[in-house]
Nucleic acid binder design. Structure first.
Lengths: 190, 190
DNA sequence: TATTTACACTAGCGCTTGCTTGGTTACTTA
DNA sequence: TAAGTAACCAAGCAAGCGCTAGTGTAAATA
């Protein structure tokens, strides 16, 4: 078994697992289904992952790491203007969400299936990501771009953004950037 | 077995099932766990419900029916002012969401576990509820209380509201009405 | 060349799952 | 008082579950 490595093979298996977890849900996805999708037998799966839990953790870790680095890059690319940063953050959020949709759907809706250890470890990653948001929103409030309670405002924004995975159709006329811009327009004081 | 009835006993069992489904998730909730929570043996469960699926459907139906009638009542109580209607609808949404939290969490996050027949039946109920929202939002747009694409705006609002079940703590200082008012304030043009 | 490593296989163990069966008990109604 | 019915129970079946043990083999390493 590969301890905590990130071989290309394991990455590919993780990607396939994410897809199945979205289709069927974590609990209904059996190790036999996973193995078949990967083109191997169920026993062989445990050469790559210690147990089924570890596959879930790998999927979520992958997605959250990506989100974090994309958001950081997006924020660095724009100057200190609060409005630009708000736009950039919303765009980055939706960009990751749909570039890596399967992993994020799993992270959003199967988080509770993680065992306590994995959950604790991944919580730090998620907190680091949310800290970026808090920062951006605080600046927007200070600049009076938006109004309201900082806690509530950030929850509402993240809720609206995360919920998009339930209805957004990438083959439709709108791009993720369109969504981001429309949301920011909706909440900005005019 | 009781076919499609709503005996008090069955209603109570449905309530208990909703609680367990939230705690454990539908798939991880076994009929033995359900039975124990209800104070009966697992076999007896199937006197009240045809199968496990039917319990899930009962939970979701109960919650959605409540949401529909509360929203209708709230809208009838206020006059035709678009702003009042928007407030009323947001308040009604959160009122049901937390009065009947378990059922709604199940409806929001376990919907996909429904078999196709139950899903089709319950979709009509849900559509009826969402139609109320579309109506209210159209009026608000026409009155220029809010701006933007009607489709996107309604999705964002429902997303922000539904996501509250993931973070709202009823024992905290804020009431559901506070949340509703703050959200409406956030999206209203000033 | 000898040894290790990575990756896959077959076979199946021990357990849990949703659900069924056949029967009992307590209450209501004719 | 007899019949009917709603609610329950004990026992267990067949299928499916996660995971393990032991083995084979080709490529990389010493």
């Amino acid at each position: 078994m590969n301890v905590m490595n990130a071989s290309p093979r394991r990455k590919e298996l993780t990607r396939l697992a994410a897809q199945l977890f979205v289709q069927e849900g974590f609990d209904r996805t059996t190790v036999r289904m996973l193995a078949q999708e990967m083109g191997i037998k169920s026993g062989s799966l445990f050469h790559h992952f210690k147990d089924k839990q570890e596959i879930l953790a790998a999927v979520i870790e992958e997605g959250t790491q990506n989100a974090l680095s994309i958001a950081k890059a997006a924020l660095q690319k724009c100057d200190d203007d609060p409005e630009a940063r708000l736009h950039a953050m919303a765009r980055a959020h939706l960009e990751t969400l749909f570039a890596d949709r399967n992993a994020h759907v799993v992270a959003l809706f199967e988080w509770r299936r993680l065992d306590p250890d994995a959950s604790a470890h991944l919580s730090h990653l998620r907190d680091a990501y949310e800290a970026l948001w808090v920062d951006v929103i605080d600046d927007a409030l200070a600049a009076e771009l938006i109004h309201g309670d900082r806690f509530l405002v950030s929850r509402f924004i993240l809720g609206a953004l995360n919920w998009t995975v339930r209805w957004y159709d990438p083959s439709g006329p709108r791009t993720p950037d369109d969504l981001a811009d429309e949301l920011v327009a909706m909440i900005m004081a005019r």
